[in-house]
Write a protein that binds this DNA or RNA. Sequence first.
DNA 1: GAGTTTGAAACT
DNA 2: CAGTTTCAAACTC
Length: 771
Amino acid sequence: MMICGLLFLTGFCCMQDSPVFNFINNLSPIPPPKPSETAHNVQLFKSLDLAPVSSIFASPHVNPAKEPKILIRDDSIQLPQDLHSPNSVRTRVGSTITFRMIRCRDIVSENCNINCRLNEAPIDPSDHTSNSESQLPQSMQNGVGSVESDKDQCADGKTDLTISQECTDLEGMNLDESGPDKMDPSHSGMDLHESQLSEQNKDEPAAYNGDYMIANQPNSDMLTLGLPFGTETQSVNDTQEADNSNSGKSLLNEEPNYYIQNSAHEPHLYWTGAVEGAAVDYTPQALPGALQSQLMPCNKLNDPRDYMPTEQNGLSQHLRGTRRRSLFNEKAGASNKSVDKASDRRSVNSTTPKCKTIPGDINSKPLRTPPCALPGIGLHLNALAAIPKEKIVSRDILSNINESSNLPCPAGSSPPPSEQNIINDDFAQRTDVASAEPSSQGSPKKKRHKFDNGDGTSCKRCSCKKSKCLKLYCECFAAGVYCSEPCTCQGCLNNESHMETVLSTRQQIESRNPLAFAPKVIHTSEPGLELGDFNNKTPASARHKRGCNCKKSSCLKKYCECFQGGVGCSISCRCEGCKNAFGRREGVAVLSIEEPKQASEENNACVKEEKCEIDKQLVIYQATDLAPAENLLTTPSMVECRPLACLPPPSSKKPSSKKPRSSTKLVGHPSRLCNSQAPLKTDILLSQFGNYAEMVLGDSTSDTLKGNSSPQTSVKVVSPNKKRVSPPRMGTGLSPICKSGRKLILKSIPSFPSLGGDLNNEDPKSKTPAP
DNA sequence: GAGTTTGAAACT
DNA sequence: CAGTTTCAAACTC
């Protein structure tokens, strides 16, 4: 029965003709990439599969219009019937993006909560199982949205909540999952779960850091989810009811506000949402990556699932992690290790019941999922998986995303993780890069394992001492995220409690340099145009926006932003003796000639090595069709879309004071956006989002996300000889994730303000805060 | 883990 | 805008 139901749902979702699909398409200007379709399907599928229980009710907050589950959940929540009505559905759909974002948030927080509950709160396994089981069938029968079934499920209490949360997580996860696998009926169903579970157990020790868990609860949305353990059972029902009143409205009607508020209060939440949104925003090239990254975050979110015995976790993570990961990982063993570790952490943490939860602690560093955490990834790219509470997005994820995005994009491509991104931050891109370096340089040791996404989106862990984390020196601040637990900073003011200070500081910095928070790597809409094709392989499309000024590092070390970002140096660079493996800037040859022969020789050697590695990576990507999208490498910077950065200085943006290049497009990391957003106040955030999104979407969307480009771009990128934007940045995490979902998100997401001059966007003006 | 190096950011 | 200082990451030992 379940299988049939799943198949039915997936089929439904897959159907382009389906109202949902149409609706989605209408929403987003960007043509949904094929992956997206799969993603949707996947999501639906997962929701059903993974969480039969989940179907019960996702967190009341989140009601993805798209997903039947969500609807169901809402119903369970007692949302107004309107919602259920076709109309209601549509409304939701319209707000889908928002919802999704919320969900991401919720997912994270929820996951945390869930974990805590699971661990801490006594739960009757029998109940849980029974619920889940029973629910599945119901959900199946009910189809997308049987309210009643949901309600019933909800009635169960804790168990239900957990389940629902899981479901939500799953949903989020679904996004991540690219999906073909998921789509497969074979995979779907209990079988998958079992296999996955077993794998999960193995792979993921499970210990989730309580820290991660901690986060969101304080917020209203999360409140329900975040109920104190002790009160969980009762609270569940109560909360649900309360949520019903609130959630129903807020979610559907007030989504924007809701979203914003949450974000404002809790970076995490904000992040998650941001992440998705970010994905949307990202340039086309970036988008794919971004989407993935977003998904990744979601995946990371999934991590919580890991805790859960449920099969779901296993599915999402497992699939993602193994496959995607493998792609990147293969590239750089080191990176892989880092990723794995990150994943391990998560799993471990997740498994461990402990929730450090500090229900109320907003300030406390939000959960960061370990950047590396991303399923496949470690996190971040910091971001998602690990998403620090505040930073949520792990660069790992981002990195993953970025990487994926980069690959495909290269031609045109794009972007970014730090963390992830994502969640993470360290992951992909940076790791890749790092890995590349070591190989070339042979200094494997040291690269810090930050969870960088590549660009820092991923979980960044700063260790600021004097800057109070209010300067660009601070990665967290620069990434637009609040400092979180992993940070070892002193006198940190980059937290929610000092939100105003943070914002004002950001504004100051932006007023000084509108692009200060912009992604460091720019992807030109047309590769090679502005920047010109440098002899090097790096596609002109992705270049360091500003250019580096390296002198001693020869652009072969992370000191070089270009290198760090996995992009070649561009004309704008003022570096000396540039040996950037990703592409030397023009004129470098001359410089190199001038330079001592030794240097040149060394450089060449290094370059060759790096190239080889890169090529290998590229090949890998090529090999896997999906990979490109997922893996698209994005430079870390790319990954990092920072919403905050996007925020136009309140007063006025300086047109392009320094760096902005009219033609070039900024690629932001989705994850990053998310991150940045978190810290930002809602108003600002909203406005930023819109603009930012526009910026990103404008050009890039066409390329990567739209799906049009994806294949081609990926291929181009891959082109063996040329080192393109090295995936490196992208971070280890390949988070294929959110490919499809992202698009949706993008549209829904308000456009972000364009960055200074770079962005052509109209947005700055248009910024219209969300209602 | 401590210390050094490096280059961006901040400041003047 | 240029030069200097400050800063924290990257790197080395």
